[in-house]
Design a protein around this nucleic acid. Structure first.
Lengths: 342, 342
DNA sequence: TTGAAAGCGCTAACAT
DNA sequence: ATGTTAGCGCTTTCAA
């Protein structure tokens, strides 16, 4: 039951009666090896259950490791899950494996993760930057040839490739949709912290839509929450005011869940809703939820493709890729302005 | 712009005018170092932007790498996202980082991923086994001290710790709920392939509930699909038959999405539904969706805890941990048996 | 076609 | 308090 030492190249070599280098040659299909020794080596490898130590190999070869470091806020958020899948699908052909960690949107945890990934000599670093994180320390690595891509939000302290959604335009389109259906008092339920890039951009889109329609901006209609429960609470508060909004705009998928849950709970079907980011079952709700859909997998693929191009020597200027959003009209944005019930 | 070589321990040592070992001592807070040299070393480290090579360190130290390998079917499935979060939360304190890959439920991809993880000398291996995968090759690693835990489904070809939901009992409880509300023709919409452990167990629970109520098993009421779209299609077909079921049981979260979407599309509100696994917005649907809720984060935590215990020397017999499900009654299971509309 | 020696970046074990 | 030597498991280089 004792933890017996894992077999090494040398063990296999000894077993067969050849040099370590010969075994190495067989395994890497490097130089020429006679068919006979090849057989023997392979047999010994199978028998001993030898598995080459990738770290040792990497040390010697010197290049970056065949891993890609990915820092996202939350593994359990479906948006980032889809992003991760897009990335994995794109890099798999290149033999890269995903090293992942969630930052919980905490700058310190993000820093610890990136440091760890750098120490592991990842081939690529893809980061969803937390509020307050500074990325100046990544600069030198980028100059040294490490592709760094910021995702969902631009980074701070260095200029590098970023992939973001068309947050402002998308939000503006979503809010305009509400306005087109007669709404003039539109609540904005955003996530926290308020300095979050996506929140600011989407709020800017909201304000632009109001401006476009000559609707004065009412600060009191903008509320915030950390999670779904929080969103439910602020939604309830907003609607219980003497002058409640007739429509709500959700700043992200989690806020959307909160709004929808609260409206269902309180049976306020007459409140119009448009959400930024799609959620599952949106079309099965009553009314079906109109959303400004993002393309999370495409965002992931795009980030990965950009990084791979850098890895292949692309030295062009840092780009910001904007992945377009799409207004998916399903009904919830067209609720009547006046009158309750259906 | 050329990729300048990353600085090494030796570079730092040369810069300060000390030996490599001294630098190592400072960084690992090993043996005694004078405050002065400490300062100097730290300064040089910062200036050169030195980041110790974790792989080199690991090679020398010989122990397993501080990574945990995780193979799941799909990164974008919220169930597995939550599982992953549970795992990460549990192992973070121990300084372990997640190495993840999705198998797409393909035995060959699963094998390639585990091989890669083993080659990286992960500290722990957690796998959601694909249908048709054989895990005999992991046996020797487990004996050699590598904690291997199967998650969501038991493995094949070796006995080791597994963490699963109470699939059979949960499904039985869910179907019994439908029967209690007068349903006798209950459709089962399951995922594929049919040999999938969770599907078989849940189907067994479905049959047990029928048996308990003396309802004959009608094979034609059991249908299958690969994804949400497929589930929508088979749901539609099932309900368009001359003798349609009055209730449906969803075999997993994806099937649930398909059923709910199809019922909403075709406005068949009178069909009762209970789903295995919870989905977001379940409570906002009309009727709200009754589910047999799993505890994905708990499953992840449980798997991680078990693995860590093994890492700490626990040599007791392999366990199968069953994480209980919970019937969450929300309404959709109580639809009337006869009569359409509300 | 094969092997011996050196070395990747780091640390364990022993000096000093 | 610091340095030296050797070696982790592998590959590169050069020689046979």
């Amino acid at each position: 039951m004792a933890a017996s030492r894992r077999p090494t190249l040398a063990d296999v070599a000894r077993e067969v009666g050849v040099s370590a280098k010969t075994v190495s040659r067989v395994l890497n299909e490097d130089g020429p090896v006679s068919a006979r020794t090849r057989e023997h080596v392979l047999a010994a490898v199978a028998e001993l259950g030898f598995q080459p130590n990738l770290m040792a190999r990497n040390i010697r070869v010197g290049g970056p490791d065949t891993t890609i470091g990915l820092v996202i806020p939350d593994l359990a958020n479906p948006f980032f899950g889809a992003v991760a899948r897009g990335i994995e699908d794109t890099v798999r052909d290149r033999g890269l494996t995903l090293l992942m960690g969630s930052s919980a949107d905490d700058a310190e945890r993000e820093r610890a993760l990136t440091a760890q990934f750098l120490a592991r000599r990842v081939s690529i670093l893809i980061v969803v930057p937390s509020v307050g994180a500074d990325h100046s320390d990544l600069k030198s690595h980028r100059t040294a040839g490490l592709p760094v891509v910021f995702l969902d939000r631009p980074g701070v302290g260095m200029s590098t490739d970023s992939v973001v959604s068309s947050n402002r335009a998308g939000a503006q389109e979503g809010v305009a949709h509400l306005i087109a259906h007669g709404h003039r008092r539109i609540g904005f339920v955003g996530d926290l912290p308020v300095k979050l890039y996506t929140r600011r951009e989407r709020l800017a889109g909201y304000r632009a839509a109001l401006r476009e329609a000559d609707i004065p901006y009412d600060r009191s209609l903008v509320v915030s929450a950390h999670d779904q429960q929080g969103a439910e609470a602020v939604t309830a508060q907003l609607l219980e005011r003497p002058d409640p909004p007739t429509a709500l705009f959700a700043g992200n998928n989690i806020m959307a869940l909160g709004i929808v849950a609260e409206l269902a709970r309180s049976k306020r079907k007459h409140v119009a809703v448009v959400a930024f980011d799609d959620v599952s079952l949106a079309e099965a709700l009553e009314p079906a939820l109109t959303v400004v859909a993002q393309a999370p997998e495409e965002i992931g693929r795009s980030a990965a493709t950009t990084a791979l191009a850098r890895l292949d020597g692309d030295r062009s200027r840092a780009r910001t890729i904007t992945v377009p959003t799409r207004l998916v009209v399903r009904g919830s944005g067209e609720q009547r302005v006046r009158e309750g019930g259906r």
